[in-house]
Every structure is written in structure tokens, then in C-alpha cells.
Computed example of a mutant assay.
Amino acid sequence: MKRFLMILLSAVLVMAALGGCDKKEEETVIRLGGLKGPTSMGMVKLLDDAEKGKTESKIEFTMAAAADELTPKFLKGEMDILAVPVNLASVLYNNSEGAVRFAAVNTLGVLYIVEKGGTTVNSVADLKGKTIYATGKGTTPEYALRYLLGENGLDPDKDVTIEWKSEPTEVAAVLGQEAEGVAMLPQPFVTVAMGQVEGLKVALDLTEEWEKLDNGTRFITAGLVVRKEFAEKYPKQLAKFLEEYKASTEYLNANVTEGAALVEKYGIVKAAVAEKAIPACNVVYLDGDEMKTAVDGYLNILFEANPKAVGGKLPGSDFYLGS
């Protein structure tokens, strides 16, 4: 009898252990945040599908005009995943002592050189002697511009004059008043400005100019960050979310008209503007080693320009999801 009870107890323990292995992950609603602009365009199909109950992911979405509306909540654990500028992802990692993981690149470069009244700018070197109107002083657009000028043999402080404005609308206003002019603008403001300023055209795609350097880095605007705690607690749901997010970016690029309507639905920009801007917004999905190589190289360039741009130091290897 005693032996029988021992065998029965062993069987119960084995079954309990097996049951523990098969224990289902607790379902949760993913609290997702995005910024009003290209960095959120890739998710609009996913948001629409989730709203209609067509996705496995259950999503609670918050759109913001500025990152500081989202990041405090994220760091306090009140949001789970954010689409933010890549340098901000590094800052969040450093400020949280490594409690943040970078999951995927979702937007490459969105900066362009536009020109009015001439066809004189066909390369970065052609900017020599020009006055460039731009926004983003002290942030990544300035560092990117200065880097590209330097890599093309120009001294940013001597060979060009950069006049910084606070908003893209100010840049467009200046160009509208002048017979000729050169500016650096991000999408979708490039598309908006071209509709407002007669004779304005795109002279250079700075993402393409960056690729021409063939230096092993890529020009990146933004990506997805997830709280480490969330990633560890809900790995299956995070993996499914990323799979559905990737499909959403692919849908946007393959169905521009329909995607533009969704971009307007979620308050990013009007559909008419979005339809023209989407092909130039470089919405992508990069993960794994491709993501790590691209982000490492870009953050190194920003760090060399100004360590504060990445939070004072480069993130550790555990910055990347799955590392």
C-alpha cells in the first residue's frame, strides 16, 4: 500500500510539472504609444485591424505630438511599447539603467534637401556656399546634416550657412518669400511645403546620400522600444505583436492609397498628403542582426557628435531584444 501511494504521488508530481510547462501565458492588453508623424505610419493597419478584432494582439493606443508626453508613463510602467526616435531609445535605456529593449527599426531617414528656383544642387558637395534653412538644431537632424557635409568634404561651419528655424512651417514661409532657396525638411513636411511653395522640388534624399557613403551604417529615424519587464513576462504576445506590426508596415508600402486613408484616420496627416509622402517616408521593419548593425553604427555617429544625444553613453549589448 505504501509503495502504491509513493507511485501515485510521483505520478501526480510529474503531471503537475508537465502542466506547469504547458501553462498558458496570461493574456494582456498591449499599451502602445506613437508620435504624430512617419514613426507611427507603419502601425496604422495593425491599429485598424486590432480595432476591428482581426488581430491576436489586443492594443490600447495613445498618439502624442511630443515624446515627453509618453516617455514618463513608459518608464513608470504605464505603457509597454513605444515608437520613438532611435536616439531617444538609447536615452531611455540609459535613464532606466537598462530596463528598455530595442525591438525593431521602423523608419529610416526622412530628411530631404529641397530647392527653389534652380537646379544647382545635385550632390551634397553642391551645397558649398549655400544658405540652408532647417529645423532641429541641437538634435539628430543637425548631427546628421553636419555628418553628411563633413563626409562630403565640406566644413559645416565654414562652407555653408545653416539658418535654424523652430518649425518646418517657418522654413516653408521663408522659401515662399524668396526667389531662390535651399532647405532641409523632414517628411511629410516636404510634401506639405511643395504644395504651398511654387517651384519647390526635392534636390537630395539624405537617406540615399548616407547609403552612398558605404560606411557600414544606416540613416535611421525611429524604432520600437519595449519595457524589459513586459518582454520577459509576455514573450509570446510580444512576438505575435511584432509579427503583426511587420505585416502592417508591408501593407502600408504595398497599398499606399488605402494606407493613406488609415494614416488620416489615426490623425497623423491628411490622406492626400500621406499618399504622396508615404513612398518617401522610408517605413521599414528591421530586426535581428540587421537591426543591431544598423543601430549600432548610427548611435556611434551620434555619440561622436554629442554624447548627450544618446543619453551620455552608448547602450550595452543587452539593449537589443533577444540579446
Rank of each mutant, 00 (worst) to 15 (best):
Val100Phe: 05
Leu175Ala: 10
Thr135Gln: 07
Asp157Val: 03
Ala104Tyr: 00
Phe61Tyr: 13
Tyr93Ser: 09
Asn94Glu: 09
Asn87Val: 14
Arg101Cys: 05
Tyr147Ile: 08
Leu92Asp: 14
Thr71Gln: 09
Asn87Ile: 06
Thr139Met: 10
Val182Met: 04
Ser96His: 03
Leu75Ser: 11
Phe102His: 02
Leu88Cys: 09
Leu148Met: 14
Asn87Pro: 05
Glu151Pro: 00
Lys58Val: 03
Thr119Pro: 00
Ser166Gln: 11
Tyr133Glu: 01
Ala89Met: 05
Leu175Glu: 08
Asn87Leu: 05
Ser57Thr: 08
Gly77Cys: 00
Gly136Phe: 09
Phe102Thr: 01
Thr169Glu: 11
Ala134Met: 15
Gly176Glu: 02
Asn95Cys: 01
Asp157Met: 09
Glu142Met: 04
Leu154Cys: 14
Ile113Ser: 02
Tyr93Val: 04
Pro168Val: 13
Ala134Ile: 05
Thr119Gln: 14
Glu97Gly: 01
Leu175Asp: 05
Val121Pro: 09
Gly150Ala: 15
Arg101His: 05
Lys54Tyr: 00
Gly181Trp: 10
Ser166Ala: 15
Glu170Leu: 04
Phe74Arg: 00
Lys128Gly: 02
Lys158Arg: 14
Leu145Asn: 02
Leu148Gln: 14
Lys130Asp: 04
Asp157Trp: 02
Leu149Met: 13
Val114Leu: 09
Leu75Gln: 12
Lys128Asn: 04
Gly129Phe: 10
Lys128His: 03
Ala67Leu: 05
Val105Ile: 04
Glu180Gly: 03
Asp68Trp: 13
Gly136Asn: 03
Gly109Lys: 10
Pro141Glu: 06
Gly181Ser: 01
Gly181Ala: 02
Gln177Ile: 00
Leu145Lys: 02
Glu170Pro: 06
Asn152Ser: 06
Ala144Phe: 12
Gly117Tyr: 15
Glu56Arg: 12
Leu92Asn: 03
Asp159Gln: 09
Lys73Thr: 07
